[in-house]
Nucleic acid binder design. Sequence first.
DNA 1: GTCTATAGCGGGATAGAC
DNA 2: GTCTATCCCGCTATAGAC
Lengths: 177, 177
Amino acid sequence: MEIFGRAGYQNASFAAVAEAVGLTLPGLLHHFPRKVDLLIAVLEQRDTDMRTRFPVIDDSWLGTLDSLIQVARYNETVPGVVRAFSLLSVESLTEDHPAAAWFAARTEETRGLMARAFRRGLAEGTLKPDRDPEALAAEVMAVMDGLQIQWLRAGTAFDLSGIFEAYARHFIETHRA
Amino acid sequence: MEIFGRAGYQNASFAAVAEAVGLTLPGLLHHFPRKVDLLIAVLEQRDTDMRTRFPVIDDSWLGTLDSLIQVARYNETVPGVVRAFSLLSVESLTEDHPAAAWFAARTEETRGLMARAFRRGLAEGTLKPDRDPEALAAEVMAVMDGLQIQWLRAGTAFDLSGIFEAYARHFIETHRA
DNA sequence: GTCTATAGCGGGATAGAC
DNA sequence: GTCTATCCCGCTATAGAC
Protein backbone atom coordinates (compact mmCIF):
# COMPACT_ATOMS: atom_id res chain seq x y z
CA MET A 1 0.00 0.00 0.00
CA GLU A 2 2.81 2.35 0.95
CA ILE A 3 4.82 1.67 -2.20
CA PHE A 4 1.80 1.81 -4.49
CA GLY A 5 0.82 5.02 -2.74
CA ARG A 6 4.13 6.58 -3.64
CA ALA A 7 4.50 5.39 -7.22
CA GLY A 8 1.21 3.96 -8.41
CA TYR A 9 1.10 0.39 -9.67
CA GLN A 10 2.89 0.29 -13.00
CA ASN A 11 5.70 2.57 -11.91
CA ALA A 12 6.15 0.83 -8.56
CA SER A 13 9.00 -1.65 -8.39
CA PHE A 14 8.10 -5.10 -7.15
CA ALA A 15 11.65 -5.41 -5.86
CA ALA A 16 11.13 -2.25 -3.80
CA VAL A 17 8.12 -3.86 -2.16
CA ALA A 18 10.19 -6.95 -1.42
CA GLU A 19 12.90 -4.86 0.17
CA ALA A 20 10.36 -2.91 2.23
CA VAL A 21 9.08 -6.13 3.79
CA GLY A 22 12.56 -7.55 4.27
CA LEU A 23 12.57 -10.06 1.42
CA THR A 24 14.35 -10.45 -1.86
CA LEU A 25 12.35 -10.28 -5.05
CA PRO A 26 12.08 -14.06 -5.52
CA GLY A 27 11.17 -14.33 -1.85
CA LEU A 28 8.16 -12.08 -2.36
CA LEU A 29 7.33 -13.84 -5.62
CA HIS A 30 6.89 -17.02 -3.62
CA HIS A 31 3.85 -15.44 -1.93
CA PHE A 32 2.61 -13.40 -4.89
CA PRO A 33 3.55 -15.24 -8.11
CA ARG A 34 3.05 -12.13 -10.21
CA LYS A 35 3.09 -8.44 -9.44
CA VAL A 36 -0.57 -8.19 -10.34
CA ASP A 37 -1.47 -10.72 -7.63
CA LEU A 38 -0.09 -8.33 -5.05
CA LEU A 39 -2.15 -5.51 -6.52
CA ILE A 40 -5.36 -7.52 -6.24
CA ALA A 41 -4.48 -8.50 -2.67
CA VAL A 42 -3.93 -4.86 -1.73
CA LEU A 43 -7.27 -3.82 -3.24
CA GLU A 44 -9.17 -6.60 -1.46
CA GLN A 45 -7.42 -5.78 1.80
CA ARG A 46 -8.56 -2.16 1.77
CA ASP A 47 -12.02 -3.21 0.67
CA THR A 48 -12.43 -5.65 3.55
CA ASP A 49 -11.05 -3.12 5.99
CA MET A 50 -13.52 -0.44 4.91
CA ARG A 51 -16.51 -2.79 4.92
CA THR A 52 -15.58 -3.76 8.47
CA ARG A 53 -15.06 -0.21 9.64
CA PHE A 54 -18.13 1.24 7.92
CA PRO A 55 -20.71 -1.51 7.51
CA VAL A 56 -23.89 -0.44 5.75
CA ILE A 57 -26.30 -0.46 8.65
CA ASP A 58 -28.46 2.40 7.53
CA ASP A 59 -29.65 2.64 3.96
CA SER A 60 -31.41 5.96 4.28
CA TRP A 61 -29.83 8.75 2.28
CA LEU A 62 -29.30 10.83 5.40
CA GLY A 63 -27.52 7.95 7.06
CA THR A 64 -25.43 7.38 3.95
CA LEU A 65 -24.24 10.97 3.88
CA ASP A 66 -23.48 10.81 7.58
CA SER A 67 -21.39 7.69 7.02
CA LEU A 68 -19.49 9.45 4.26
CA ILE A 69 -18.59 12.26 6.65
CA GLN A 70 -17.16 9.62 8.98
CA VAL A 71 -15.27 8.08 6.07
CA ALA A 72 -13.78 11.46 5.18
CA ARG A 73 -12.66 11.95 8.79
CA TYR A 74 -11.11 8.50 8.90
CA ASN A 75 -9.40 8.95 5.56
CA GLU A 76 -7.64 12.04 6.89
CA THR A 77 -5.79 9.77 9.30
CA VAL A 78 -4.50 7.44 6.58
CA PRO A 79 -3.12 9.63 3.78
CA GLY A 80 -0.95 6.85 2.38
CA VAL A 81 -3.95 4.61 1.86
CA VAL A 82 -5.99 7.40 0.29
CA ARG A 83 -3.07 8.23 -1.97
CA ALA A 84 -2.73 4.62 -3.05
CA PHE A 85 -6.40 4.30 -3.85
CA SER A 86 -6.73 7.61 -5.66
CA LEU A 87 -3.66 6.77 -7.72
CA LEU A 88 -4.66 3.21 -8.53
CA SER A 89 -8.24 4.19 -9.27
CA VAL A 90 -7.32 6.72 -11.93
CA GLU A 91 -4.42 4.64 -13.20
CA SER A 92 -6.94 1.88 -13.85
CA LEU A 93 -8.34 4.07 -16.65
CA THR A 94 -5.27 3.32 -18.75
CA GLU A 95 -5.38 0.73 -21.52
CA ASP A 96 -5.35 -2.91 -20.44
CA HIS A 97 -4.92 -2.09 -16.77
CA PRO A 98 -5.24 -5.21 -14.59
CA ALA A 99 -7.46 -3.46 -12.05
CA ALA A 100 -9.78 -1.80 -14.56
CA ALA A 101 -12.62 -4.28 -14.02
CA TRP A 102 -12.17 -4.19 -10.26
CA PHE A 103 -12.52 -0.41 -10.04
CA ALA A 104 -15.34 -0.32 -12.56
CA ALA A 105 -17.33 -2.84 -10.54
CA ARG A 106 -16.49 -1.15 -7.25
CA THR A 107 -17.54 2.29 -8.50
CA GLU A 108 -20.71 0.89 -10.01
CA GLU A 109 -21.62 -0.84 -6.76
CA THR A 110 -21.06 2.21 -4.60
CA ARG A 111 -22.98 4.48 -6.93
CA GLY A 112 -25.76 1.92 -7.11
CA LEU A 113 -26.08 1.72 -3.33
CA MET A 114 -26.20 5.48 -2.99
CA ALA A 115 -28.68 5.86 -5.82
CA ARG A 116 -30.89 3.28 -4.13
CA ALA A 117 -30.79 5.26 -0.90
CA PHE A 118 -31.84 8.39 -2.81
CA ARG A 119 -34.64 6.51 -4.58
CA ARG A 120 -35.87 5.31 -1.22
CA GLY A 121 -35.81 8.92 -0.03
CA LEU A 122 -37.98 9.88 -2.98
CA ALA A 123 -40.41 7.06 -2.25
CA GLU A 124 -40.59 8.01 1.42
CA GLY A 125 -40.96 11.67 0.59
CA THR A 126 -37.87 12.75 2.53
CA LEU A 127 -35.99 13.84 -0.60
CA LYS A 128 -37.06 16.61 -2.96
CA PRO A 129 -37.95 15.15 -6.35
CA ASP A 130 -36.09 17.74 -8.40
CA ARG A 131 -32.95 15.74 -9.21
CA ASP A 132 -32.17 12.34 -10.66
CA PRO A 133 -31.06 9.87 -7.91
CA GLU A 134 -28.27 8.45 -10.08
CA ALA A 135 -26.99 11.95 -10.79
CA LEU A 136 -27.03 12.82 -7.09
CA ALA A 137 -25.06 9.69 -6.30
CA ALA A 138 -22.51 10.52 -8.99
CA GLU A 139 -22.23 14.08 -7.63
CA VAL A 140 -21.57 13.01 -4.05
CA MET A 141 -18.96 10.49 -5.13
CA ALA A 142 -17.33 13.07 -7.35
CA VAL A 143 -17.06 15.54 -4.48
CA MET A 144 -15.45 12.93 -2.26
CA ASP A 145 -12.97 11.76 -4.89
CA GLY A 146 -12.18 15.23 -6.15
CA LEU A 147 -11.61 16.68 -2.69
CA GLN A 148 -9.30 13.80 -1.82
CA ILE A 149 -7.14 14.56 -4.84
CA GLN A 150 -6.93 18.23 -3.91
CA TRP A 151 -6.12 17.26 -0.34
CA LEU A 152 -3.33 14.94 -1.44
CA ARG A 153 -1.84 17.72 -3.51
CA ALA A 154 -2.20 20.56 -1.05
CA GLY A 155 -1.22 18.72 2.11
CA THR A 156 -2.44 19.31 5.65
CA ALA A 157 -3.47 22.89 4.89
CA PHE A 158 -6.49 21.48 3.03
CA ASP A 159 -9.42 20.69 5.33
CA LEU A 160 -10.76 17.60 3.58
CA SER A 161 -13.35 16.49 6.10
CA GLY A 162 -14.37 20.03 6.95
CA ILE A 163 -15.12 20.91 3.34
CA PHE A 164 -16.89 17.62 2.71
CA GLU A 165 -18.99 18.01 5.83
CA ALA A 166 -20.00 21.55 4.86
CA TYR A 167 -20.96 20.24 1.43
CA ALA A 168 -22.95 17.35 2.90
CA ARG A 169 -24.81 19.58 5.35
CA HIS A 170 -25.75 22.01 2.61
CA PHE A 171 -26.78 19.05 0.46
CA ILE A 172 -29.10 17.79 3.20
CA GLU A 173 -30.54 21.22 3.92
CA THR A 174 -31.34 21.94 0.31
CA HIS A 175 -32.54 18.50 -0.75
CA ARG A 176 -34.63 17.55 2.24
CA ALA A 177 -38.32 17.53 1.42
CA MET B 1 -1.90 13.66 -26.00
CA GLU B 2 -3.39 10.51 -27.48
CA ILE B 3 -0.59 8.26 -26.22
CA PHE B 4 -0.45 9.90 -22.79
CA GLY B 5 -4.23 9.57 -22.66
CA ARG B 6 -3.98 5.85 -23.17
CA ALA B 7 -1.06 5.04 -20.86
CA GLY B 8 -0.33 8.01 -18.66
CA TYR B 9 3.13 9.57 -18.75
CA GLN B 10 5.51 7.15 -17.06
CA ASN B 11 4.00 4.08 -18.64
CA ALA B 12 3.79 5.65 -22.08
CA SER B 13 6.56 4.73 -24.48
CA PHE B 14 8.37 7.63 -26.09
CA ALA B 15 9.05 5.34 -29.03
CA ALA B 16 5.31 4.76 -29.42
CA VAL B 17 4.82 8.52 -29.69
CA ALA B 18 7.55 8.67 -32.31
CA GLU B 19 5.92 5.94 -34.34
CA ALA B 20 2.50 7.61 -34.04
CA VAL B 21 3.86 10.75 -35.64
CA GLY B 22 5.86 8.86 -38.26
CA LEU B 23 9.33 9.27 -36.80
CA THR B 24 11.88 7.03 -35.22
CA LEU B 25 12.74 7.55 -31.56
CA PRO B 26 15.91 9.55 -32.23
CA GLY B 27 13.98 11.55 -34.78
CA LEU B 28 11.50 12.65 -32.13
CA LEU B 29 14.30 13.20 -29.64
CA HIS B 30 15.69 15.79 -32.01
CA HIS B 31 12.61 17.95 -31.32
CA PHE B 32 12.11 16.98 -27.66
CA PRO B 33 15.53 16.17 -26.16
CA ARG B 34 13.99 14.30 -23.25
CA LYS B 35 10.66 12.61 -22.73
CA VAL B 36 9.78 15.11 -20.04
CA ASP B 37 10.13 17.97 -22.53
CA LEU B 38 7.32 16.44 -24.55
CA LEU B 39 5.19 16.19 -21.41
CA ILE B 40 5.64 19.87 -20.62
CA ALA B 41 4.87 20.79 -24.23
CA VAL B 42 1.64 18.76 -24.12
CA LEU B 43 0.56 20.42 -20.87
CA GLU B 44 1.26 23.90 -22.18
CA GLN B 45 -0.52 23.13 -25.42
CA ARG B 46 -3.74 22.16 -23.69
CA ASP B 47 -3.43 25.11 -21.34
CA THR B 48 -3.08 27.59 -24.18
CA ASP B 49 -5.94 25.94 -26.05
CA MET B 50 -8.30 26.21 -23.08
CA ARG B 51 -7.35 29.80 -22.31
CA THR B 52 -8.11 30.66 -25.92
CA ARG B 53 -11.39 28.79 -26.00
CA PHE B 54 -12.60 29.97 -22.61
CA PRO B 55 -11.00 33.30 -21.82
CA VAL B 56 -11.95 34.74 -18.44
CA ILE B 57 -14.18 37.59 -19.54
CA ASP B 58 -16.55 37.50 -16.62
CA ASP B 59 -15.26 37.21 -13.08
CA SER B 60 -18.65 37.01 -11.39
CA TRP B 61 -19.34 33.67 -9.70
CA LEU B 62 -22.45 33.16 -11.83
CA GLY B 63 -20.45 33.75 -14.98
CA THR B 64 -17.74 31.40 -13.76
CA LEU B 65 -20.22 28.57 -13.19
CA ASP B 66 -21.73 29.20 -16.57
CA SER B 67 -18.31 28.97 -18.18
CA LEU B 68 -17.71 25.68 -16.41
CA ILE B 69 -20.89 24.26 -17.90
CA GLN B 70 -19.55 25.19 -21.31
CA VAL B 71 -16.22 23.57 -20.46
CA ALA B 72 -18.00 20.37 -19.45
CA ARG B 73 -19.89 20.34 -22.75
CA TYR B 74 -16.72 20.92 -24.71
CA ASN B 75 -14.83 18.28 -22.78
CA GLU B 76 -17.42 15.71 -23.79
CA THR B 77 -16.27 16.14 -27.36
CA VAL B 78 -12.60 15.46 -26.59
CA PRO B 79 -12.49 12.35 -24.38
CA GLY B 80 -8.87 11.60 -25.25
CA VAL B 81 -7.76 15.00 -24.00
CA VAL B 82 -9.80 14.70 -20.82
CA ARG B 83 -8.39 11.24 -20.26
CA ALA B 84 -4.84 12.49 -20.70
CA PHE B 85 -5.33 15.33 -18.28
CA SER B 86 -7.13 13.33 -15.62
CA LEU B 87 -4.45 10.67 -15.83
CA LEU B 88 -1.51 13.06 -15.78
CA SER B 89 -3.04 15.19 -13.05
CA VAL B 90 -3.39 12.31 -10.60
CA GLU B 91 -0.16 10.67 -11.73
CA SER B 92 1.57 13.90 -10.78
CA LEU B 93 0.84 13.03 -7.15
CA THR B 94 3.48 10.29 -7.29
CA GLU B 95 6.92 10.85 -5.83
CA ASP B 96 9.28 13.03 -7.85
CA HIS B 97 6.88 13.42 -10.73
CA PRO B 98 8.16 15.96 -13.29
CA ALA B 99 4.74 17.62 -13.63
CA ALA B 100 3.99 17.83 -9.90
CA ALA B 101 4.80 21.54 -9.65
CA TRP B 102 2.93 22.31 -12.86
CA PHE B 103 -0.31 20.72 -11.67
CA ALA B 104 0.04 22.13 -8.17
CA ALA B 105 0.40 25.65 -9.53
CA ARG B 106 -2.38 25.14 -12.08
CA THR B 107 -4.82 23.81 -9.45
CA GLU B 108 -3.90 26.60 -7.06
CA GLU B 109 -4.47 29.22 -9.74
CA THR B 110 -7.86 27.89 -10.78
CA ARG B 111 -9.08 27.52 -7.21
CA GLY B 112 -7.79 31.01 -6.45
CA LEU B 113 -9.68 32.54 -9.36
CA MET B 114 -12.90 30.82 -8.40
CA ALA B 115 -12.52 31.72 -4.75
CA ARG B 116 -12.01 35.32 -5.78
CA ALA B 117 -15.24 35.23 -7.78
CA PHE B 118 -17.08 33.89 -4.74
CA ARG B 119 -15.55 36.52 -2.48
CA ARG B 120 -16.70 39.18 -4.89
CA GLY B 121 -20.18 37.65 -4.75
CA LEU B 122 -20.09 37.97 -0.98
CA ALA B 123 -18.98 41.59 -1.18
CA GLU B 124 -21.68 42.40 -3.73
CA GLY B 125 -24.28 40.55 -1.73
CA THR B 126 -25.19 38.13 -4.53
CA LEU B 127 -23.87 35.09 -2.66
CA LYS B 128 -25.19 33.78 0.64
CA PRO B 129 -22.55 34.19 3.36
CA ASP B 130 -23.00 30.72 4.84
CA ARG B 131 -20.02 29.00 3.27
CA ASP B 132 -16.29 29.65 2.93
CA PRO B 133 -15.40 30.90 -0.59
CA GLU B 134 -12.28 28.72 -0.75
CA ALA B 135 -14.31 25.66 0.25
CA LEU B 136 -16.92 26.42 -2.40
CA ALA B 137 -14.20 26.70 -5.04
CA ALA B 138 -12.70 23.39 -3.94
CA GLU B 139 -16.13 21.77 -4.06
CA VAL B 140 -16.92 22.92 -7.59
CA MET B 141 -13.53 21.78 -8.85
CA ALA B 142 -13.97 18.45 -7.11
CA VAL B 143 -17.32 17.86 -8.78
CA MET B 144 -15.87 18.62 -12.19
CA ASP B 145 -12.80 16.42 -11.72
CA GLY B 146 -14.69 13.61 -10.04
CA LEU B 147 -17.44 13.50 -12.65
CA GLN B 148 -14.87 13.41 -15.44
CA ILE B 149 -13.26 10.35 -13.90
CA GLN B 150 -16.59 8.58 -13.60
CA TRP B 151 -17.41 9.55 -17.17
CA LEU B 152 -14.11 8.18 -18.45
CA ARG B 153 -14.80 4.91 -16.68
CA ALA B 154 -18.46 4.51 -17.58
CA GLY B 155 -18.28 5.66 -21.18
CA THR B 156 -20.96 7.42 -23.20
CA ALA B 157 -23.77 6.18 -20.93
CA PHE B 158 -22.62 8.73 -18.34
CA ASP B 159 -24.08 12.19 -18.91
CA LEU B 160 -21.13 14.30 -17.79
CA SER B 161 -22.35 17.74 -18.84
CA GLY B 162 -25.94 16.99 -17.86
CA ILE B 163 -25.02 16.02 -14.33
CA PHE B 164 -22.63 18.93 -13.95
CA GLU B 165 -25.19 21.37 -15.25
CA ALA B 166 -27.85 20.07 -12.84
CA TYR B 167 -25.33 20.43 -10.01
CA ALA B 168 -24.38 23.95 -11.08
CA ARG B 169 -28.00 25.08 -11.39
CA HIS B 170 -28.83 23.71 -7.94
CA PHE B 171 -25.70 25.39 -6.62
CA ILE B 172 -26.81 28.73 -8.03
CA GLU B 173 -30.38 28.38 -6.78
CA THR B 174 -29.37 27.50 -3.25
CA HIS B 175 -26.43 29.89 -2.86
CA ARG B 176 -27.86 32.98 -4.47
CA ALA B 177 -28.56 35.67 -1.91
C1' DG C 1 16.39 16.89 -39.66
C1' DT C 2 16.27 12.00 -39.79
C1' DC C 3 18.35 7.90 -39.68
C1' DT C 4 21.01 3.10 -37.95
C1' DA C 5 23.31 1.19 -34.34
C1' DT C 6 24.08 0.67 -29.74
C1' DA C 7 24.80 1.70 -25.03
C1' DG C 8 23.08 1.09 -20.41
C1' DC C 9 19.73 0.56 -17.14
C1' DG C 10 15.88 -1.39 -14.54
C1' DG C 11 12.02 -4.10 -14.86
C1' DG C 12 9.45 -8.84 -13.94
C1' DA C 13 10.08 -13.45 -13.87
C1' DT C 14 12.53 -18.20 -13.69
C1' DA C 15 15.99 -22.01 -12.28
C1' DG C 16 17.58 -24.39 -8.95
C1' DA C 17 20.33 -24.73 -4.46
C1' DC C 18 19.58 -24.84 0.45
C1' DG D 1 10.13 -20.47 2.44
C1' DT D 2 14.06 -17.89 1.12
C1' DC D 3 17.97 -17.40 -1.25
C1' DT D 4 21.79 -16.44 -5.44
C1' DA D 5 22.28 -16.22 -10.06
C1' DT D 6 20.54 -15.33 -14.34
C1' DC D 7 17.49 -14.45 -18.30
C1' DC D 8 15.16 -11.53 -21.34
C1' DC D 9 12.76 -7.72 -22.28
C1' DG D 10 11.57 -2.76 -23.12
C1' DC D 11 12.85 1.52 -22.03
C1' DT D 12 15.40 6.29 -22.55
C1' DA D 13 19.19 8.26 -24.35
C1' DT D 14 23.60 8.83 -27.06
C1' DA D 15 26.97 8.46 -31.08
C1' DG D 16 27.68 9.44 -35.34
C1' DA D 17 26.60 8.78 -40.48
C1' DC D 18 23.93 10.90 -44.11
